[in-house]
Design a protein around this nucleic acid. Structure first.
Lengths: 126, 126
DNA sequence: TTTATATATGAATATTTGTTCATATGTAGT
DNA sequence: ACTACATATGAACAAATATTCATATATAAA
């Protein structure tokens, strides 16, 4: 079947769908999360969206560990763990304290623990 | 500085770090989440780790919408929305009902709403 | 059964991201 | 200052993923 050159079709800068409930849209269009906030929130979940970081979070939900303990516990290189801890730090999911040469990590606060636990519950209930 | 050929270095199949707290490791090594569960949980968070899907979740946290409403509301193509709804469905985050030609989506349950809200709270508190 | 419209999906491309390797930084002890 | 060791990080490569485009499926009406 032949298709017209897209350039020939009259430009329609608006939405191409016809089934919209205009009243609903008008009501909610101003209540939706901003793009900036959506990006921010997506980044938080993205941080939790990696199995290595989940295993780190799981360990830290049970006790405080130094970097090399985590490497041993999860059987991964120190470098890989350290990279991932930085990602977790950037999302304020973990905090750390230095003691001599070692750096000990733990969950940032109880709120983070609850967020993690809610996720666990969700996958276990289905 | 010259580096020996890695092949010449004696193979050490164990961990290369020396600072491990062996007793801690022994205590927790059997309590860490399994790889399968970690993958599963990471997939859940990964699903939430995209700004388009966050905006869909945000809309659905406020009301039920059909696919083309979401496309209009978020100013995206029907195809893109539909692809992302499938991802959300696969993680049991949204459910849908068909009514004639239209398909209406909503959050799967209150637990999902709580998970989403916890995330929102986290980014707003910092 | 033909047409119109709402939604779903396979393939392809462009972008993002996790790990490794090599190396840098930071801290403590000699 | 020098050495040892714990942790951090830049660059590069491999793997995962979001959107677009084209098209398929599903439902309803004529």
């Amino acid at each position: 079947m032949e298709v017209e050159n897209p350039k020939d079709i009259e430009q329609n800068p608006v939405c191409e769908v016809q089934c919209v409930h205009s009243d609903l849209i008008r009501t909610y269009v101003n209540q939706i999360i901003t793009s900036a906030q959506a990006n921010h929130l997506a980044d938080l979940f993205k941080t939790l969206g990696d199995s290595t970081r989940i295993r780190i979070m799981d360990a830290l939900s049970k006790a405080e560990f130094c970097v090399c303990d985590l490497a041993e516990l999860l059987d991964m290189s120190q470098s890989a763990i350290s990279h991932q801890l930085r990602v977790l730090r950037n999302s304020n999911l973990v905090k750390y304290r230095r003691e001599g040469k070692m750096v000990y990590y733990s969950l940032d606060d109880d709120h983070v623990l609850r967020l993690y636990s809610q996720g666990l519950e969700h996958i276990n209930e289905k």
